[in-house]
Nucleic acid binder design. Structure first.
Lengths: 191, 191
DNA sequence: GTCTATAACTGGATAGAC
DNA sequence: GTCTATCCAGTTATAGAC
């Protein structure tokens, strides 16, 4: 019955704004405007802007874990699971088109700011990396599991960046298809 | 005999700072500090930060064109030329490690700012794209030339982003090798 | 006591007058 | 080329509302 807490609202809107506008470029006034509270009131919930970022990253980690868990239970075929990952590019295309990949753009921005929460943001990549590696292991690719995970992560990342720059959906679809082809060629090798 | 002009110095240092710190996060004072001129003098050369960005992008376009021209003359083998491109990841690793790809991080940042110079920055990608496509055509891959160009551009981009995040040189080297293998497998197909 | 609004402080930014 | 104006960010202090 309770309404969503103010704290949760702040995190939720900050999450969205950090993604769409970037962390640095998003001000308290921006967030306050969306949550409809006064600027000063923030400090009742968070000690600093960095704490909001920390909470946002934690929210993203939780949401990502949820997504991976769902994929894990919705099918027992690891190849199909990896395909779920690859196809986020298409599922989320309407956002990626304008704002890029939420993980890659955040880690890149924090790297340039030399921000103290770089490691936290990188955990988002690690979450995908480890999950993907686990799937490749299930496919029988034990030795190359991590390398393959990084490979597919990197290709997805590149497609997101180029897709965002050129705003070309066909390019994204083609690359997704190629990644799926590559994935399925691995399966056959294992037979 | 002339010393490098003040204007050129501003652009050069801005280029470096925009790359290392990001565009938004770099202030006039930062640039003025490096060029060692007063801030008033700044306005003699540039009316706004956006004008500096425009000049920086033009400088990068010129530098990129120079690099491509050099590769074009230093070898008449298109496959080897594309390898030159792929291997920038290793050549520039010491910078990519900390600041990512100068092109990808700029276009991503400008996309989030919804900046008016997005199209100018994208030209940097187009320069590479068209040059790569021309090389693939010379390799005999006429129909797929542009798709291959985008493919290799995207993969390089992804490797830069992940390399920057995980700071893992071995990963970069492995991916570079794989891209070169892929490239050479195309050559054989054509005979 | 918990949450919120208002106002003011501080530093850094762009901008522009002199 | 200095110096100032203005604005806006993050932050803090205080006092009121529930």
């Amino acid at each position: 019955m309770n309404k969503i807490s103010t704290r949760a609202q702040i995190i939720q809107h900050a999450d969205q704004l950090f993604y769409q506008q970037g962390f640095e470029n998003t001000s308290f006034a921006d967030i306050a405007g969306m949550v409809k509270i006064s600027r000063g009131n923030f400090y009742h919930h968070f000690k600093s802007k960095d704490e909001i970022l920390k909470a946002v990253i934690e929210l993203r980690l939780a949401n990502t874990q949820n997504m991976l868990d769902k994929w894990q239970t919705s099918t027992d075929n690891p190849t199909k699971r990896i395909e779920c990952f690859i196809k986020i590019l298409i599922t989320n295309w309407s956002k990626i088109k304008y704002y890029g990949c939420p993980v890659g753009t955040l880690t890149s921005e924090l790297a340039k700011l030399n921000h103290s929460l770089q490691a936290n943001a990188n955990e988002l990549f690690s979450l995908f990396r480890n999950w993907l590696a686990a799937q490749f292991e299930l496919m029988g690719q034990v030795k190359k599991a991590d390398a393959f995970a990084m490979h597919i992560l990197a290709r997805s990342q590149g497609v997101a960046t180029l897709g965002n720059s050129f705003r070309d959906e066909n390019f994204v679809k083609q690359e997704v298809e190629q990644m799926c082809d590559w994935l399925n060629s691995l399966k056959k090798q294992q037979g």
